[in-house]
Amino acid sequence: MIRPFESKDLEGILDIWLEANLQAHDVIASNYWLRKFKFSADVLPQTELSVCEDGTTSIASFIGLDGQYI
């Protein structure tokens, strides 16, 4: 189910964000993404976020929209 972001979703979103960046950018040292974690935790909730639950209330994916930028 796709639904709007709720503050309780932030931890799950950040877990996905970190894992996705570590996998997609494996040529970049992991500590780079770990240093960006706090920044992302502050910035992501400022965007228009939607989450997709996997049927168990766990976040399976998310999308953020900042203006016209995904």
Score class of each variant (00 low, 15 high):
Leu10Lys: 03
Ile13Tyr: 07
Glu6Arg: 11
Asp26Cys: 08
Gly67Arg: 06
Ala20Glu: 11
Phe37Tyr: 13
Ala41Ser: 14
Ala41Lys: 15
Met1Phe: 08
Thr57Gln: 15
Ala20Lys: 03
Glu48Ala: 10
Lys36Thr: 03
Asn21Asp: 05
Leu49Pro: 03
Val51Phe: 13
Ile28Phe: 07
Ile63Gly: 08
Val51Leu: 09
Met1Val: 13
Thr57Met: 12
Gly55Val: 09
Gln46Phe: 02
Val51Asp: 08
Ser50Asn: 12
Gly55Thr: 10
Ser61His: 11
Ile59Gly: 02
Lys38Cys: 02
Cys52Gly: 15
Asp42Tyr: 14
Asn21Lys: 09
Glu6Ile: 05
Asp42Val: 04
Leu49Ser: 09
His25Ile: 00
Asp54Cys: 05
Ala41Leu: 12
Ser7Pro: 12
Phe39Ile: 10
Asp26Lys: 11
Ile70Gly: 05
Ala24Val: 02
Ala24Ile: 01
Gln23Met: 01
Val51Arg: 15
Asp26Arg: 11
Lys38His: 08
Tyr32Met: 01
Glu11Cys: 01
Phe5Leu: 02
Asp66Pro: 01
Val43Lys: 06
Ala29Pro: 09
Ile28Gly: 01
Glu11Gly: 01
Gly67Ile: 02
Tyr69Cys: 04
Phe39Asp: 07
Asn21Gln: 03
Glu11Leu: 06
Leu49Lys: 14
Arg35Met: 07
Gln23Lys: 11
Thr57Asn: 14
Ile63Phe: 12
Tyr69Thr: 10
